[in-house]
Structure formats: C-alpha cells, structure tokens
C-alpha cells in the first residue's frame, strides 16, 4: 500500500491539531471498533458565518490523520456554506488520492465537519440548513461492514 507524498506530509506535519477551549461547536465521529475516531472543534463568527478557527484530534491510521488535517485546512477561514460543500472526494483529491481501502477515512472527515456544525446549530438553537448529514459517525464503516 502506497500513500501519496501529500498524505505523508499531512501525517508527519498535521495542520490544526489541538483543541479550542471556547469552541462554537464540537463534533466527534467514528468509533474504536472501526479503528478511527475524529474529533473536531470550530470557532465560528456568528455574524459572518465564517469558521475562524478549527482544530482536530484523531485516533486512527496515517490516512485518517492526514484527511483530518487536510479537511481542517480546507475549511479554515471559509463560511459554513462553503464548508458544507467539502466532500469526501474533495478531501481525498486534495491529498492526491487515497488507497481504496482507506477511502472510508475521508468519509470520516466530511462527517466530522457536519457533526461539528450540527453541534453549533444545536448550541445556538437554530434549525440546521438542509444538506447537513445526520450521522453519529462511521457511516462508511457501517456500509463496509454490511458488505
């Protein structure tokens, strides 16, 4: 199995690792059974809807850590609407691809973004926008388990 240089770069020097004390939203997806857990923190400007800061912590393989890192980089400084448009495929492509067996790791990145935004809306008491995934994590794993 071969990882791209970009995956190795993001695994070795992950961007945005950490926690945000007064986060606007916190989301965690995945479970130990499937081997990946991704936790994401966001600081969101209520007026502009801009994700001003984002941090993550991930339990998982090199691909899981790299996709977490890339996903945070892709949404930092972007609006919520823009963040919601980030897809699994876009994260994987930004990393110059992932080995087929690792594609579920990129699912986790998208799910983490959505879970964190869900938490933000819940905390605000605002109705979440359409297109927000309702997934408590590891949707990808469940799918593969069923195969």
């Amino acid at each position: 199995m071969l990882y791209s240089e970009k995956v190795m770069d993001h695994f070795t020097n992950p961007r945005n690792v950490g926690e945000i004390e007064d986060a606007s939203g916190v989301g965690q997806v995945g479970n130990p059974k499937c081997g990946d857990i991704m936790k994401m923190y966001m600081k969101i400007n209520d007026d502009t809807g801009v994700i001003e800061d984002v941090k993550f912590k991930t339990f998982g393989c090199g691909a899981a850590i790299a996709t977490s890192s890339m996903a945070t980089e892709m949404i930092k400084g972007k609006t919520i609407d823009e963040a919601l448009k980030v897809t699994n495929l876009a994260v994987a492509e930004a990393l110059d691809g992932l080995p087929p067996i690792k594609m579920h790791c990129s699912n986790l990145a998208q799910e983490a973004i959505h879970a964190t935004l869900s938490d933000y809306y819940a905390k605000k008491g605002i109705e979440p926008p359409e297109g927000l995934l309702q997934c408590d994590g590891c949707c990808g794993c469940d799918k593969e388990d069923a195969e």
Binding site: M1, D36, F59, G60, C61, G62, A63
Partner: peptide
C-alpha cells in the same frame, strides 16, 4: 493510539515492524 501511525513513524526512523491494527491488515 492506532498501530499504523506507529509503523509509518517508525519507518521514517529506519525501523521496520508490524501491527495487529485493522489499518495495516487491509
């Protein structure tokens, strides 16, 4: 922590080992 991250990091230090993690088993 998860095994594959350990293996990749060890490999960068010139060490070849293995793990029982799912991520390394395919």
């Amino acid at each position: 922590i998860e095994g594959e991250g350990m293996l990749l990091s060890l490999d960068m230090k010139g060490i070849a080992a293995s793990s029982g993690s799912a991520c390394t088993s395919g």
